[in-house]
């Protein structure tokens, strides 16, 4: 698939992020085209989550620029990034356990941005039938898979144009991973762009367009997913 430069929805330039005095990201650069699914591969501790949190404004980076739809968002707090159309699905789900399923969705509700369909609780419960049965249950009572669905549904309530997914398959049973796969394909078909960190290579291969390998806080390798070099993967990702 050929892309024009103006089709870039997210552009990250020379990002430097620190935890205290320890530098985690080194001049990291990254971009996502409209409608594209990009996967960040890399070992534990390579900096994948830090990249995602820096983009979302949850960690303030020391220097570097982040552009979303051409607007600079590197100094914006998370809630403003969200209002612009960025959705964030955290690694450890972080659902609100004391709120019901519907209340969790309510927290994520944002007005829709132009050209993107409005997600309503009714549409989302149709997409995730398991949640529909439990709409008035406390979210803390859901199973792990259901919680993962809820956290995605909750983010969709913000009608994002780009979703940041942090290791969505972690700790899920294979049958749920398959369900997740169809869900993400569905989102892609709706025109939503996705930037995802993932350790499960098979899952990444079957869903994404392009792979970026994060190693020691930098993107060391990138290619269309079909051309992902085994040598590069083993060099940077294998344990």
């Amino acid at each position: 698939m050929e892309h024009n430069i103006q089709d870039i929805i997210l552009n990250v330039e020379s990002l430097n992020t620190y935890y205290g005095k320890a530098q985690i990201l080194f001049d990291l650069a990254l971009h996502v085209y409209c409608g594209e699914v990009v996967v960040l591969l890399g070992r534990n501790g390579a900096g994948k989550t830090t990249v995602l949190k820096s983009i979302m404004g949850m960690i303030s980076s020391k220097s570097g620029r982040v552009f979303f739809k051409g607007k600079s968002i590197d100094k914006l707090p998370p809630y403003k990034c969200c209002a612009l159309g960025l959705g964030y699905v955290p690694q450890d789900r972080r659902i609100f356990k004391g709120l019901t399923v519907l209340e969790n969705l309510e927290v994520g509700r944002q007005p829709p941005s132009e050209g993107y369909g409005e997600w309503t609780p009714a549409r989302l419960l149709e997409l995730f039938p398991n949640l529909a049965e439990r709409r008035n249950h406390l979210a803390g009572m859901l199973s792990g898979g259901e919680q993962q669905m809820l956290t995605i549904a909750r983010t969709l309530m913000g009608n994002p144009e780009l979703i940041i997914l942090d290791e969505p398959t972690e700790g899920l049973a294979p049958v749920i991973v398959n369900h997740l796969l169809t869900t993400i394909q569905r989102l892609k078909s709706e025109g939503i762009s996705i930037l995802m960190a993932e350790q499960n290579l098979n899952f990444a291969r079957s869903i994404s367009d392009r792979a970026c390998i994060v190693y020691q806080g930098q993107i060391r390798y990138q290619s269309p997913i079909a051309e992902l070099s085994q040598a590069a993967y083993e060099k940077y990702c294998a344990l």
Binding site: M58, P78, Y79, Y88, F96, K97, V107
Partner: peptide, 21 residues
């Protein structure tokens, strides 16, 4: 009220979901 309860549980997450803390 729902936003208040959500922020009580996890304010960073509710920030990331678009709630102005």
């Amino acid at each position: 009220g729902i936003l208040v309860r959500a922020a009580t549980e996890d304010r960073e997450m509710s920030d990331a979901l678009g709630v102005n803390q």
